[in-house]
Design a binder for these strands. Structure first.
Lengths: 164, 164
DNA sequence: TATTTAAGTCAACATGGCTGACATAAATAC
DNA sequence: GTATTTATGTCAGCCATGTTGACTTAAATA
Protein backbone atom coordinates (compact mmCIF):
# COMPACT_ATOMS: atom_id res chain seq x y z
CA UNK A 1 0.00 0.00 0.00
CA UNK A 2 1.24 3.41 -0.98
CA UNK A 3 2.66 6.06 1.28
CA UNK A 4 0.15 8.04 3.22
CA UNK A 5 1.58 11.46 2.78
CA UNK A 6 3.70 12.26 -0.21
CA UNK A 7 2.79 9.42 -2.49
CA UNK A 8 2.15 9.59 -6.19
CA UNK A 9 -1.39 8.37 -5.54
CA UNK A 10 -3.69 11.41 -5.33
CA UNK A 11 -6.79 9.31 -4.75
CA UNK A 12 -5.38 7.71 -1.64
CA UNK A 13 -4.15 11.04 -0.41
CA UNK A 14 -7.63 12.37 -0.65
CA UNK A 15 -8.97 9.44 1.38
CA UNK A 16 -6.45 10.11 4.07
CA UNK A 17 -7.18 13.81 4.12
CA UNK A 18 -10.85 13.10 4.60
CA UNK A 19 -10.06 10.74 7.42
CA UNK A 20 -7.90 13.35 9.06
CA UNK A 21 -10.64 15.93 8.76
CA UNK A 22 -13.06 13.69 10.62
CA UNK A 23 -10.54 13.19 13.35
CA UNK A 24 -9.68 16.87 13.56
CA UNK A 25 -13.34 17.67 14.03
CA UNK A 26 -13.52 15.26 16.94
CA UNK A 27 -10.43 16.65 18.65
CA UNK A 28 -11.43 20.26 18.04
CA UNK A 29 -14.90 19.77 19.45
CA UNK A 30 -13.47 17.92 22.44
CA UNK A 31 -10.96 20.64 23.23
CA UNK A 32 -13.35 23.45 22.39
CA UNK A 33 -15.87 22.33 25.00
CA UNK A 34 -13.52 21.12 27.74
CA UNK A 35 -12.84 24.44 29.48
CA UNK A 36 -16.47 25.54 29.48
CA UNK A 37 -17.58 22.19 30.84
CA UNK A 38 -15.30 22.72 33.82
CA UNK A 39 -16.68 26.20 34.40
CA UNK A 40 -20.27 25.05 34.07
CA UNK A 41 -19.65 22.33 36.64
CA UNK A 42 -18.93 24.99 39.25
CA UNK A 43 -22.53 26.18 38.73
CA UNK A 44 -23.89 22.65 38.81
CA UNK A 45 -24.65 22.93 35.10
CA UNK A 46 -23.68 20.86 32.08
CA UNK A 47 -23.18 21.31 28.40
CA UNK A 48 -26.91 21.20 27.78
CA UNK A 49 -27.36 24.30 29.93
CA UNK A 50 -24.63 26.01 27.98
CA UNK A 51 -26.40 25.43 24.69
CA UNK A 52 -29.60 26.92 26.01
CA UNK A 53 -27.81 29.93 27.46
CA UNK A 54 -25.88 30.39 24.29
CA UNK A 55 -28.82 30.32 21.89
CA UNK A 56 -31.17 32.31 24.11
CA UNK A 57 -28.44 34.92 24.44
CA UNK A 58 -27.78 34.97 20.73
CA UNK A 59 -31.40 35.06 19.64
CA UNK A 60 -33.38 36.97 22.28
CA UNK A 61 -37.10 36.31 22.38
CA UNK A 62 -36.54 32.88 20.96
CA UNK A 63 -39.55 30.61 21.49
CA UNK A 64 -39.34 27.15 22.99
CA UNK A 65 -40.21 25.47 19.71
CA UNK A 66 -37.55 27.42 17.84
CA UNK A 67 -35.01 26.38 20.45
CA UNK A 68 -36.11 22.77 20.06
CA UNK A 69 -35.60 22.96 16.32
CA UNK A 70 -32.10 24.33 16.76
CA UNK A 71 -31.02 21.83 19.40
CA UNK A 72 -32.84 18.89 17.82
CA UNK A 73 -33.86 17.37 21.11
CA UNK A 74 -37.27 16.63 22.60
CA UNK A 75 -39.19 19.13 24.66
CA UNK A 76 -38.93 16.82 27.66
CA UNK A 77 -35.15 16.93 27.45
CA UNK A 78 -35.13 20.67 27.01
CA UNK A 79 -37.65 21.16 29.77
CA UNK A 80 -35.25 19.76 32.33
CA UNK A 81 -32.39 22.16 31.68
CA UNK A 82 -34.53 25.14 30.69
CA UNK A 83 -36.65 24.66 33.80
CA UNK A 84 -33.57 24.79 36.00
CA UNK A 85 -32.27 27.88 34.26
CA UNK A 86 -35.58 29.69 34.66
CA UNK A 87 -36.03 28.54 38.26
CA UNK A 88 -32.56 29.78 39.17
CA UNK A 89 -33.06 33.08 37.42
CA UNK A 90 -30.66 32.75 34.50
CA UNK A 91 -33.39 32.81 31.86
CA UNK A 92 -36.74 34.61 31.85
CA UNK A 93 -39.84 33.40 30.07
CA UNK A 94 -42.76 35.65 29.13
CA UNK A 95 -45.85 35.19 26.97
CA UNK A 96 -45.43 36.55 23.46
CA UNK A 97 -47.14 39.84 22.59
CA UNK A 98 -49.20 38.60 19.64
CA UNK A 99 -49.42 34.89 20.34
CA UNK A 100 -49.64 34.45 24.07
CA UNK A 101 -49.01 30.70 23.86
CA UNK A 102 -45.44 31.27 22.73
CA UNK A 103 -42.90 31.90 25.45
CA UNK A 104 -40.35 34.59 24.78
CA UNK A 105 -37.07 33.44 26.28
CA UNK A 106 -34.43 35.93 27.36
CA UNK A 107 -31.31 35.97 29.48
CA UNK A 108 -31.61 37.81 32.76
CA UNK A 109 -28.80 39.97 34.08
CA UNK A 110 -27.51 36.89 35.91
CA UNK A 111 -27.81 34.86 32.73
CA UNK A 112 -25.92 37.43 30.69
CA UNK A 113 -23.13 37.40 33.25
CA UNK A 114 -22.73 33.63 32.94
CA UNK A 115 -23.03 33.78 29.17
CA UNK A 116 -20.31 36.36 29.10
CA UNK A 117 -17.94 34.23 31.16
CA UNK A 118 -18.53 31.24 28.90
CA UNK A 119 -18.21 33.27 25.74
CA UNK A 120 -14.93 34.69 26.89
CA UNK A 121 -13.46 31.23 27.19
CA UNK A 122 -14.63 30.08 23.80
CA UNK A 123 -13.90 33.33 22.03
CA UNK A 124 -10.32 33.28 23.21
CA UNK A 125 -10.01 29.72 21.96
CA UNK A 126 -11.34 30.60 18.51
CA UNK A 127 -9.55 33.92 18.43
CA UNK A 128 -6.21 32.26 19.06
CA UNK A 129 -6.81 29.73 16.30
CA UNK A 130 -7.92 32.51 13.94
CA UNK A 131 -4.88 34.63 14.76
CA UNK A 132 -2.49 31.76 14.13
CA UNK A 133 -4.20 30.60 10.97
CA UNK A 134 -4.67 33.93 9.24
CA UNK A 135 -7.49 35.62 7.37
CA UNK A 136 -7.73 33.35 4.36
CA UNK A 137 -7.66 30.26 6.55
CA UNK A 138 -10.59 31.63 8.53
CA UNK A 139 -12.64 32.14 5.40
CA UNK A 140 -11.92 28.57 4.36
CA UNK A 141 -12.78 27.24 7.80
CA UNK A 142 -16.19 28.88 7.69
CA UNK A 143 -16.81 27.79 4.14
CA UNK A 144 -16.13 24.13 4.86
CA UNK A 145 -18.15 24.07 8.08
CA UNK A 146 -21.05 25.66 6.23
CA UNK A 147 -20.81 22.91 3.65
CA UNK A 148 -21.28 20.30 6.35
CA UNK A 149 -24.58 21.78 7.51
CA UNK A 150 -27.62 20.02 6.12
CA UNK A 151 -30.77 21.88 7.13
CA UNK A 152 -32.13 25.41 7.32
CA UNK A 153 -29.27 26.60 9.47
CA UNK A 154 -27.11 26.82 6.41
CA UNK A 155 -29.45 29.28 4.72
CA UNK A 156 -29.60 31.37 7.87
CA UNK A 157 -25.84 31.64 7.92
CA UNK A 158 -25.55 32.43 4.27
CA UNK A 159 -28.11 35.20 4.65
CA UNK A 160 -26.23 36.63 7.59
CA UNK A 161 -23.06 36.87 5.54
CA UNK A 162 -21.01 34.14 7.15
CA UNK A 163 -20.02 32.60 3.86
CA UNK A 164 -17.69 35.44 2.98
CA UNK B 1 -2.56 40.98 16.18
CA UNK B 2 -3.69 41.32 12.60
CA UNK B 3 -7.17 42.44 11.80
CA UNK B 4 -9.46 39.65 10.83
CA UNK B 5 -12.06 41.78 9.15
CA UNK B 6 -11.87 44.81 7.01
CA UNK B 7 -14.98 46.69 8.05
CA UNK B 8 -15.73 50.10 9.46
CA UNK B 9 -16.07 48.53 12.88
CA UNK B 10 -13.48 45.79 12.96
CA UNK B 11 -13.89 45.09 16.64
CA UNK B 12 -17.59 44.44 16.49
CA UNK B 13 -17.38 42.41 13.34
CA UNK B 14 -14.71 40.32 14.87
CA UNK B 15 -16.85 39.62 17.92
CA UNK B 16 -19.69 38.56 15.73
CA UNK B 17 -17.50 36.39 13.55
CA UNK B 18 -16.15 34.59 16.58
CA UNK B 19 -19.67 34.04 17.83
CA UNK B 20 -20.65 32.66 14.46
CA UNK B 21 -17.68 30.33 14.43
CA UNK B 22 -18.72 28.83 17.76
CA UNK B 23 -22.20 28.31 16.45
CA UNK B 24 -21.00 26.85 13.17
CA UNK B 25 -18.93 24.34 15.07
CA UNK B 26 -21.99 23.24 17.02
CA UNK B 27 -24.17 22.85 13.92
CA UNK B 28 -21.43 21.12 11.94
CA UNK B 29 -20.73 18.61 14.69
CA UNK B 30 -24.44 17.98 15.13
CA UNK B 31 -25.02 17.35 11.44
CA UNK B 32 -21.78 15.47 10.98
CA UNK B 33 -22.72 12.86 13.57
CA UNK B 34 -26.45 12.56 12.90
CA UNK B 35 -26.40 10.05 10.05
CA UNK B 36 -23.88 7.74 11.69
CA UNK B 37 -25.82 7.80 14.93
CA UNK B 38 -28.84 6.47 13.06
CA UNK B 39 -26.78 3.72 11.44
CA UNK B 40 -25.16 2.75 14.73
CA UNK B 41 -28.57 2.47 16.35
CA UNK B 42 -29.45 -0.35 13.97
CA UNK B 43 -26.55 -2.30 15.52
CA UNK B 44 -27.57 -1.34 19.04
CA UNK B 45 -24.51 0.87 19.26
CA UNK B 46 -24.00 4.53 20.08
CA UNK B 47 -21.53 7.25 19.34
CA UNK B 48 -19.13 5.94 21.96
CA UNK B 49 -18.84 2.67 20.03
CA UNK B 50 -18.18 4.63 16.89
CA UNK B 51 -15.26 6.46 18.45
CA UNK B 52 -13.65 3.21 19.53
CA UNK B 53 -14.16 1.61 16.13
CA UNK B 54 -12.83 4.66 14.43
CA UNK B 55 -9.62 5.00 16.43
CA UNK B 56 -8.88 1.30 16.59
CA UNK B 57 -9.32 1.15 12.83
CA UNK B 58 -7.14 4.17 12.27
CA UNK B 59 -4.37 3.15 14.65
CA UNK B 60 -4.17 -0.64 14.62
CA UNK B 61 -2.51 -2.25 17.63
CA UNK B 62 -3.53 0.69 19.77
CA UNK B 63 -3.35 -0.11 23.48
CA UNK B 64 -6.16 0.54 25.92
CA UNK B 65 -4.26 3.30 27.68
CA UNK B 66 -3.51 5.06 24.41
CA UNK B 67 -7.18 4.88 23.51
CA UNK B 68 -8.08 6.32 26.89
CA UNK B 69 -5.73 9.22 26.35
CA UNK B 70 -7.27 9.97 22.98
CA UNK B 71 -10.87 9.75 24.12
CA UNK B 72 -10.26 11.41 27.48
CA UNK B 73 -12.69 9.22 29.34
CA UNK B 74 -12.19 6.82 32.25
CA UNK B 75 -11.27 3.19 31.73
CA UNK B 76 -14.58 2.19 33.33
CA UNK B 77 -16.47 4.12 30.68
CA UNK B 78 -14.36 2.70 27.90
CA UNK B 79 -14.60 -0.80 29.31
CA UNK B 80 -18.33 -0.87 28.77
CA UNK B 81 -18.29 -0.10 25.06
CA UNK B 82 -15.00 -1.81 24.28
CA UNK B 83 -16.19 -4.91 26.11
CA UNK B 84 -19.32 -5.05 23.98
CA UNK B 85 -17.34 -4.60 20.79
CA UNK B 86 -14.90 -7.37 21.70
CA UNK B 87 -17.67 -9.69 22.92
CA UNK B 88 -19.59 -9.23 19.68
CA UNK B 89 -16.52 -9.76 17.55
CA UNK B 90 -16.01 -6.28 16.12
CA UNK B 91 -12.69 -5.72 17.87
CA UNK B 92 -9.98 -8.20 18.79
CA UNK B 93 -7.66 -7.85 21.75
CA UNK B 94 -4.34 -9.66 22.06
CA UNK B 95 -1.39 -9.39 24.44
CA UNK B 96 1.42 -7.25 23.08
CA UNK B 97 4.53 -9.01 21.78
CA UNK B 98 7.07 -7.29 24.01
CA UNK B 99 4.92 -6.16 26.95
CA UNK B 100 2.27 -8.78 27.50
CA UNK B 101 0.28 -6.53 29.84
CA UNK B 102 -0.62 -4.24 26.97
CA UNK B 103 -3.57 -5.28 24.85
CA UNK B 104 -3.20 -4.79 21.13
CA UNK B 105 -6.57 -3.73 19.79
CA UNK B 106 -7.54 -4.38 16.19
CA UNK B 107 -10.67 -4.43 14.10
CA UNK B 108 -11.84 -7.85 13.01
CA UNK B 109 -13.22 -8.46 9.54
CA UNK B 110 -16.67 -7.71 10.96
CA UNK B 111 -15.34 -4.57 12.60
CA UNK B 112 -13.74 -3.37 9.40
CA UNK B 113 -17.02 -3.86 7.59
CA UNK B 114 -18.86 -1.65 10.07
CA UNK B 115 -16.05 0.89 10.09
CA UNK B 116 -16.24 1.05 6.34
CA UNK B 117 -19.97 1.72 6.35
CA UNK B 118 -19.58 4.49 8.91
CA UNK B 119 -16.61 6.01 7.14
CA UNK B 120 -18.49 6.08 3.89
CA UNK B 121 -21.19 8.21 5.45
CA UNK B 122 -18.80 10.69 7.02
CA UNK B 123 -16.40 10.80 4.11
CA UNK B 124 -19.19 11.70 1.74
CA UNK B 125 -20.26 14.46 4.10
CA UNK B 126 -16.76 15.93 4.30
CA UNK B 127 -16.05 15.27 0.64
CA UNK B 128 -19.11 17.24 -0.39
CA UNK B 129 -18.13 20.16 1.80
CA UNK B 130 -14.57 20.02 0.49
CA UNK B 131 -15.73 19.90 -3.10
CA UNK B 132 -18.00 22.89 -2.66
CA UNK B 133 -15.48 24.91 -0.72
CA UNK B 134 -12.40 24.33 -2.84
CA UNK B 135 -8.80 23.46 -2.15
CA UNK B 136 -7.70 26.65 -0.40
CA UNK B 137 -10.75 26.58 1.84
CA UNK B 138 -9.87 23.05 2.87
CA UNK B 139 -6.36 24.08 3.85
CA UNK B 140 -7.78 26.90 5.94
CA UNK B 141 -10.33 24.62 7.56
CA UNK B 142 -7.61 22.25 8.70
CA UNK B 143 -5.39 25.04 9.84
CA UNK B 144 -8.02 26.61 12.07
CA UNK B 145 -9.15 23.29 13.55
CA UNK B 146 -5.54 22.47 14.32
CA UNK B 147 -5.24 25.79 16.14
CA UNK B 148 -8.11 24.81 18.41
CA UNK B 149 -6.35 21.65 19.60
CA UNK B 150 -4.61 22.01 22.92
CA UNK B 151 -2.69 18.83 23.71
CA UNK B 152 -0.32 16.37 22.06
CA UNK B 153 -2.76 15.63 19.28
CA UNK B 154 -1.76 18.81 17.57
CA UNK B 155 1.87 17.77 17.33
CA UNK B 156 0.87 14.40 15.96
CA UNK B 157 -1.12 16.06 13.22
CA UNK B 158 1.59 18.51 12.36
CA UNK B 159 4.10 15.69 12.06
CA UNK B 160 1.78 13.77 9.78
CA UNK B 161 1.49 16.72 7.42
CA UNK B 162 -2.09 17.72 8.11
CA UNK B 163 -1.24 21.40 8.34
CA UNK B 164 -1.21 21.55 4.55
C1' DT C 1 11.48 -9.67 46.45
C1' DA C 2 8.92 -5.30 46.35
C1' DT C 3 6.90 -2.04 43.62
C1' DT C 4 4.86 -0.15 39.69
C1' DT C 5 2.18 -0.50 35.61
C1' DA C 6 -1.64 -2.06 32.28
C1' DA C 7 -5.74 -3.73 32.36
C1' DG C 8 -10.20 -5.47 34.16
C1' DT C 9 -14.18 -5.53 37.40
C1' DC C 10 -17.96 -4.21 40.65
C1' DA C 11 -20.99 -0.84 42.56
C1' DA C 12 -23.16 3.46 42.72
C1' DC C 13 -24.33 7.73 40.82
C1' DA C 14 -25.15 11.98 37.42
C1' DT C 15 -26.25 13.96 33.01
C1' DG C 16 -28.82 14.27 29.26
C1' DG C 17 -30.87 11.93 25.61
C1' DC C 18 -35.49 9.11 24.58
C1' DT C 19 -40.81 7.48 24.51
C1' DG C 20 -45.60 7.68 25.91
C1' DA C 21 -49.38 9.71 28.09
C1' DC C 22 -51.76 13.49 29.53
C1' DA C 23 -53.04 18.67 30.79
C1' DT C 24 -53.79 23.50 29.76
C1' DA C 25 -54.44 27.62 27.45
C1' DA C 26 -54.67 30.14 23.40
C1' DA C 27 -55.29 30.50 18.54
C1' DT C 28 -57.78 29.16 14.62
C1' DA C 29 -61.13 26.65 11.63
C1' DC C 30 -65.75 25.47 10.63
C1' DG D 1 -69.75 29.16 19.32
C1' DT D 2 -68.02 24.86 19.39
C1' DA D 3 -64.30 21.94 17.65
C1' DT D 4 -59.73 21.41 16.53
C1' DT D 5 -55.03 22.47 16.35
C1' DT D 6 -50.94 24.44 18.33
C1' DA D 7 -47.45 25.80 21.95
C1' DT D 8 -46.10 24.58 26.07
C1' DG D 9 -45.64 22.01 30.30
C1' DT D 10 -45.49 17.79 33.15
C1' DC D 11 -45.12 12.98 35.02
C1' DA D 12 -43.00 8.59 34.78
C1' DG D 13 -39.67 5.53 33.31
C1' DC D 14 -35.91 3.89 30.30
C1' DC D 15 -31.24 4.07 27.99
C1' DA D 16 -26.44 5.61 26.85
C1' DT D 17 -22.50 7.24 28.53
C1' DG D 18 -20.00 9.86 31.50
C1' DT D 19 -18.16 9.99 36.65
C1' DT D 20 -15.73 8.21 41.41
C1' DG D 21 -13.92 4.80 44.48
C1' DA D 22 -12.29 0.36 45.74
C1' DC D 23 -10.25 -3.77 44.56
C1' DT D 24 -7.90 -7.67 41.62
C1' DT D 25 -4.62 -9.78 38.51
C1' DA D 26 -0.65 -10.37 35.79
C1' DA D 27 3.45 -8.72 34.01
C1' DA D 28 7.32 -5.65 33.98
C1' DT D 29 10.78 -3.45 36.53
C1' DA D 30 13.52 -1.46 40.44
Amino acid sequence: MADINTGPNPLFLREDQLHQAMELLFYAYRDFTAECDAMLATYGFGRAHHRVIYFVGRYPNLSVSELLRILRITKQSLSRVLGELVAQGFVSSHPGPTDRRRRMLELTEKGRALESRLSTIQRSCIARAYREAGVEAVAGFRKVLLGILTGDDRKRFERSGAAG
